[in-house]
Nucleic acid binder design. Structure first.
Lengths: 110, 110
DNA sequence: AAATCATTTAACCAAATGGTTGACAAACTC
DNA sequence: GAGTTTGTCAACCATTTGGTTAAATGATTT
C-alpha cells in the first residue's frame, strides 16, 4: 500500500538519476521519436539506448507503440507527478530557510 | 558547466531513489537529529545508516555538525530545488496531456 | 587511564547498473 | 526470397550499491 507508492517513487527517481535518460526524456518531450532517432545524438550503442528505454518504461515515463518496423516512443509526463508531489512537501522548508537567510544578510526591516 | 549541473542532478535523484533515504529526509525535516536517533526506526545497522547519510550529504541534502560526542544532522532543503526545477519543465506537458484525456472521457463541453 | 557511548571505516558479499559485442527476429525493399 | 533496416536479447565485464560484521576513532564518564 504505502509500499507500492514507495516502489513507484524508487523507480521514477532512479530513472531520473542518469543524465542520458533525462536527456532522452527531453528529446521525446518535443515529439514522438523512433529508437534509432533517439539514439542518434548519443555516443553509445543502440542496445544501451534500448536498455535506457526499458528503465524509463518501467518507471512509466514513456510509452512505446509498434508502427510498422519502427518502435515509436512518446513521453508519459503524468508519471512525473508523484515525484513532483513528493518534492512539493519540502518547498515550505526551503522557503522558510531561504527567508531566514535573507533576513540574516539584509537585516530584518520591519 | 552544463555537465556539473547534470552531475548535481544525478546525485540528487540518486539520493532520492531509495525509500530509506527519502524516509530519513522526512525524519530530519521535522527537527535536527543525531545519527543514532535517525537509525532507530530502521531495521538496518548503524553502519548502513551512516552510508545512507553519506549519500545524502554528497547530494548536499543534509548537513552534519559535530556537537560533543554527537553528530547532529539537519535537512538542507534548498538542495532539492534543482530537482524541482528540472521537473517543473514537464508540468505543462502533463497538464495538456491530462486535459486531453479529460476531454476524451467527458466529452468536450463548450 | 579505563570503560563506555556515538559514529565511521574497512573488508567483504550478492545483486544491480551501464556499458559492450554478437546473434536473432520482424518488417520492409529489391 | 535474399538482403537490409530496426530493434531486442543474451552473455559478458567492470563498477556501484546496499547491506553485513568487526575493528578503529573520538568524546564523555568514572
Amino acid at each position: 500500500m504505502v509500499n507500492s507508492s514507495a516502489l513507484r517513487l524508487d523507480s521514477i527517481f532512479h530513472a531520473l538519476s542518469d543524465s542520458t535518460r533525462r536527456s532522452i526524456l527531453r528529446d521525446v518531450a518535443s515529439r514522438e521519436k523512433t529508437v534509432t532517432e533517439i539514439a542518434r545524438p548519443y555516443a553509445i550503442s543502440l542496445a544501451a539506448v534500448s536498455k535506457h528505454l526499458k528503465v524509463l518504461e518501467s518507471a512509466d515515463l514513456i510509452a512505446r507503440e509498434r508502427r510498422g518496423s519502427f518502435q515509436i516512443v512518446r513521453l508519459k509526463p503524468a508519471a512525473l507527478k508523484p515525484a513532483e508531489q513528493w518534492l512539493a512537501y519540502y518547498e515550505k522548508f526551503w522557503n522558510t530557510q531561504l527567508d531566514a537567510l535573507e533576513r540574516h544578510f539584509q537585516g530584518e526591516k520591519k
